[in-house]
Structure formats: C-alpha cells, structure tokens
Design a protein around this nucleic acid. Sequence first.
RNA 1: GCCGCAGUAGCUCAGUGGUAGAGCGCACCCUUGGUAAGGGUGAGGUCGAGAGUUCAAUUCUCUCCUGCGGCACCA
Length: 644
Amino acid sequence: MPEIRFPDGASRSYPDGVTGFDIAEDISKSLAKKALAVEVDGELRDLKRPVEADSEIRIITARDPEGLELIRHDAAHVLAEAVQELFPGTQVTIGPVIEDGFYYDFAREEPFSTEDFEKIEAKMAEIVDRDEDIVREVWDRDEAIKYFKSIGEEYKAELIADLPENEVISIYRQGEWLDLCRGPHLPSTGKLPKAFKLMKLAGAYWRGDHRNAMLQRMYGTAWADEKALKAHLNRIEEAEKRDHRKLGKEMNLFHMQEEAQGQVFWHPNGWTLYRALQDYMRRRQDEGGYKEIRTPQLMDRKFWEESGHWGKYRENMFISSIEEEDKVLAVKPMNCPCHVQVFNQGQKSYRDLPLRLAEFGSCHRYEPSGALHGLMRVRGFVQDDAHIFCREDQITDEVKKFCSLLQRVYTDLGFDDVKVRYADRPEVRVGGDEIWDKAEKALKTAADATGLDVLYEPGDGAFYGPKLDFVLRDAIGREWQVGTIQADFNLPERLDATYIGEDGEKHRPVMLHRAILGSFERFLGILIENYAGAFPMWLAPTQIVVATITEDAADYAREAADTLRKAGLRVETDLRNEKINYKVREHSNAKVPYIAVVGNREAEEKNVALRAFGEGGKKQEVISLDDAVTRLSGEALPPDLKTS
RNA sequence: GCCGCAGUAGCUCAGUGGUAGAGCGCACCCUUGGUAAGGGUGAGGUCGAGAGUUCAAUUCUCUCCUGCGGCACCA
C-alpha cells in the first residue's frame, strides 16, 4: 500500500500496483484526461507504470514544462512512425527534443523534400487519430540488437550496442511500430495535441561527426495547443522582419557580393552607423587608459611561424605573395602578435605597466563557406581589440577595470541582460600551475564582482590561459557571445616580450586579450536586429528629415535643415512634389527618428512641426526652430557625452 | 567543407519547351495637397555561368558559382 504525497502536502495511500493514471483519476476525471505523465520522487515516468513505493508524486499535464517536452518527444516518435510508414526502407536514428520543438534524423538513400511535409504531417495526424497505446517494454540487450539488425535498423543496433552495460534497454511500442527509447512517453498517440508542424529539412552527420555518414534531419515544432503553435510561428515571422540582412538592404546600410565573399561594402548610411559606434568606443577606450595603435595587414610567413599561427591556424589564413621578392606574406587573422611587436620596441620598465594597446584591427580569416552568415560571420572584419601587458599582480585590477568598462558600454548600447562565462584550465595547457592559480583567481574574482550571472565552465579555457566570455540577450531573447577577456601566458614567451622589474631583472609580462564588441560587423548585425532598425537617435544614419508640405516652403526647409546641420545633426530634406502623407509614410518606414514638417505656417513663424518616430505619429508638436535645435542636438548626443 | 533548397527588372515576386510579366522603385508630365501610398505616360531583362538534350531551352539534364536553412567549424 504505497503512501502517496502530493505537491500541496496532502497524502493518501493506494493499493499495490496503482499507476499514475489511477491516482490522477482518483483526483478528478478531468485531470486523468489531461494527464501526460507522472513525476515520482523527482523522476519523470510513464503514466501507466505502477508506483511501487511510498513517494511524492506530481501529475504532469501539457501546462508543465515537462509536459511540453513529452509532447515534443512524442511528436518526434510519431514523425518517425509516419515516415517509416510512408517511406519503407528508411532507417530511424535519433529524435531528441530541442528548443521550441524536436528533430528526427533519418537514413535514406533518396533525399526527402519539403514537398513531402504535407503528406507526412497528414500521416502524423492519422497516427494521432488512431490513438495507439504507447507501451513500455524492457528487452534483453542482445535480443534487442539482434532484432533491430534483423529489420535493417543498423543505427539503432549500434546505439544499443553502445549503451552502458547496466543500462535498462527500454523499448516503446506504439501500434505496429516500436523504437528504442529511454522514455517516458505519453500514454497513447491520441494525447499528442495536433499543434505540430514540420519546419525544415537539413543534413546532419551521424553522431555529429563529419567523418560519418550524412543523415537527413527533419525539424519540427510542437506545442500544447494550436494557439501556442500560432504564437510561435508569429515569433518566427517577427524575427525574420528584424533580420539584419533584410534591414541592411531596405535601409541601404551595406551590401555584399560574390566577388568579395564574406566581406562588407558599407554604404553611406551603414558607415555613419559604424562610425558613430566606433567614435563612441574610441572615446570610452581613451577614457579607460588605452593607447590606440595601428599595425600592418600583411606580415611575413616567418613572423607567423614564430607566433605559432602558421602551425596552428594556417588553414584559416589568407596567404599572399609577390614574385619580385620571393616572399610569402599572410594577411593578419589576429592583432595580438603585432601588438607584441609594438610592446617590444624599446625597453619596458615595470613603471610602463599596465600598458593597454588598443587597435580597431582589421583582420581576415578564411571561414568555411557554409559558416558565412550576413554580418554575423564574415571573412573580413574589424575587432575592437586591445592587449593589456601587465604584471601578474596587476591582473585582478585590470580584469575588474575591463569588466566595468564593458558593462558601461553594454548598458549604453541598450543591453541590460548580460551573462559571464568563466572558463578555467584545460587538460592541455602552457604555463605553470602557480600562474594559472593566480590568473584564474583574478578572473573569477572579477567575474563575481560584476554582479552578473556567472556560468562556470571548468576545463574550457584556452591552452594559453583562462578566460571570461560575455553573453548578451537581445530584445527578442536571443543570446550572443560578444565580449571576452583572456589571460595569455604563451605569446609573451614565444615572442619574447620582457620588462625590467624593480629588481633590475628581466621579467615576462602577462598579456590580456580583450574585446567588448568582438567585431564591429557582427556587433552591428546584433544592434540592427536588437533595435529592429529603429536606432536611438545617436546611432541613426539620418536623424531628422525636413519635409515640405508645398513648394512654397522649400526655401525655409533648406534654411531649417542648414541650421540643424550646423548644430551637428544628420539632416536630410524632402522637397519633392509629393503629398505630406506620402513623405511621412516613407520616412516613418525608414525609421527616421524625427520628421520636421514645414509649410507656410511654420515658415512664417520660423517653427517646425516635429513628429517623433514610433509614438503613433499623433504626438506632433509645433516648436520654434531654435528650440528644435537645442532639443534635438541634446537628444542626439552619444550616451557618453550626455550630461544627465 | 557536407546535405537539402533557391537564383527571372534596382527591390519583392509570378510565369512558360516557341527569346517574358506584376507591384513597388526610377524618369517625365499633370496635380501644390497639413501628418502612413493622388493620377497619367515611359524606360528598364544575355531569366546566375558553362555544357548537353531538342527544330527550338529562361523552362529539361549535368557541372560550376553564389545565396538561404541546417550540420561540421568558430584556437
């Protein structure tokens, strides 16, 4: 007679062999109907498995996160059953739950096509309608292997063979179909809400290894009800509207073309944005005690051999040569070795440290063609890079300073949700334990002091030192790894960087590699998507458009625009022979922060009718041109120059 | 790099085995209109590149290039 305790503290005893379903039914008929699984002492189980011992249980429905996972997991199984029914000879492999849905990897000679989706979805619905009982069975390992081999499921057989010795081999049967699975599952296929949709088709390597066969992966999404599915599809649509590649074209920010794969042609609008961001970063860095430098693009192969890049990073480097000189040069993929060269000029004293060398360093890396993605992953980019050369005992202080600078910048740029990832020593590494101890302690202390959420990733540091990575969450919840600070005990050694200490002896400085934005290209991509193109005034390529109602106001419009321009604002005029409605619509669509409408009335009084973007438009205000200059030029100041 | 899909006007896209079409944009004309699309006329295309099948290819087949979605990669 197991004694069952419920989440609300109540408890009851039930006869032996009682199942989660029985208990749910005992509570209420409607709960039994909605029940998907049961959590027994924290472990998720099938509804129909007997609860043997005294335990605490919770009935899981579609409202619980666990319930949603079960739904997605079952959707994957139903998909697999549907596919095997429709396409005999297809082998099943794995089908896990992922964020917002699931996928299933199939092995089949002929390719699937998205045109098959409709048919497969219909078959899935049919399987749901059949309401097949989903039954758990425990099999003998060898028998299971034999069985799956006998029906031609080589991948499944391999999976079972690779399971640990003591693992229970559970098989789930739904109707005629069965699959190896840890479970748990819904009680029957009829419990799967018809709120699923197949989304896309892609190739994926068996077990994620590119040396293995390529399988065909079907992605799907599944939800508790149709409303949730619709909401999800809506979110996808919203995200597509923000796509920086789409907005980049619409707003005439940049373009890319095949002759310069993975490299950006910045248009005037985009370059204005770029410059605004770079100018801002430059001021923040100057303020933070950095010295800006500029180093060469092309360096001799011998140099990269010394730095170690030729050995380790060769396949990512663009190589150049010139017949006349019989030399091989490489385009720099990173700035660090060059910065060490600057450090190495002349003799450095401990008094020179910390030395913070910054460069908006243009780098090129050969990225595999399949990795390229708009501004987010490019082959030519500019880093907001800097290297801090310091003594070991200065690491803590420098990392802390960096963290506060970085937080300042992220806040200014509109990102409030930031996380830190702290990664310490990997198995294979350079440098003694003593210095790793120091550096790890410094990074960890600084990370904790930021007040941000810290994720610990043991063993995930670089071979040359521990690191902190910073992750932003954007307006629609996506995460981006941007900033980083990494201690490096290796490069100063390789490139023989030294300083003279208080003791008059030569010492090795520690080098801190750090970036806040990462690359301007990628960060601008993130900014475009975060703001959905509606930039704050200081970043907006065009800050204000002066638009005329009729031709009569053209002279005044020019005069007003000049006045605003002289106050440092980025102003355009729209004197076209078009109706004001048309102009307002066009500039609103272009997300220009302000439209100053001028007609005869404004011209006579030296006023402007100001219309701010995004306020429903109705909040227009007629103010004097002078007031507009004061107000707008104040509003257009970058965050670091604003007094308030 | 691997798998799948795609490439037609400046943009978004329709279409066909007999050398192409829409909307927007652009140019010109009419209209001078007070806060999210006024009207008319017109220009604009080697239908991604190459090869093959065919009397005939933008359309079918193959190769390549580029893009997109994943996978792998991102020290």
